[in-house]
């Protein structure tokens, strides 16, 4: 897999991260290295092997539908960089 500048830009935009040119070069080449290494997986035949997302066959872990008290609003907002009344605040989302 070949990584080019456009792909790096695309990944930045997916990640909501902006790199400067030097960083793009460095990160680009490091991602290239690891991806080249990763390509070795292609040697491995995985036809018919099931994708395993969970290590152990645990299923059906449920919670009862019983209300517990919510957290105090002060706790929820305690770390908020910007808040107003009982809300978090962001720059306006609609034009």
């Amino acid at each position: 897999m070949k990584i080019d500048g456009d792909l790096i830009k695309y990944l930045e935009s997916l990640a909501r991260i902006e790199l400067n040119e030097d960083e793009e070069k460095k990160v680009g080449s490091e991602i290239q290295d690891i991806l080249t290494y990763i390509d070795m997986l292609n040697e491995l035949n995985t036809d018919g092997v099931e994708a395993m997302s969970h290590s152990f066959p645990i299923t059906n872990v449920f919670r009862k539908d019983e209300v517990k008290p919510s957290a105090p609003n002060e706790d929820i907002l305690a770390n908020a960089p910007h808040k107003q009344d009982t809300c978090f605040v962001v720059p306006k989302t609609v034009e």
Partner: peptide, 19 residues
């Protein structure tokens, strides 16, 4: 386990999980 009740002051039917 927060309530689903409609209404309430903003961010009062909220815990560390759903926030």
């Amino acid at each position: 386990s927060c309530t689903t009740e409609f209404g309430g002051e903003p961010n009062t039917h909220v815990c560390e999980i759903c926030s």
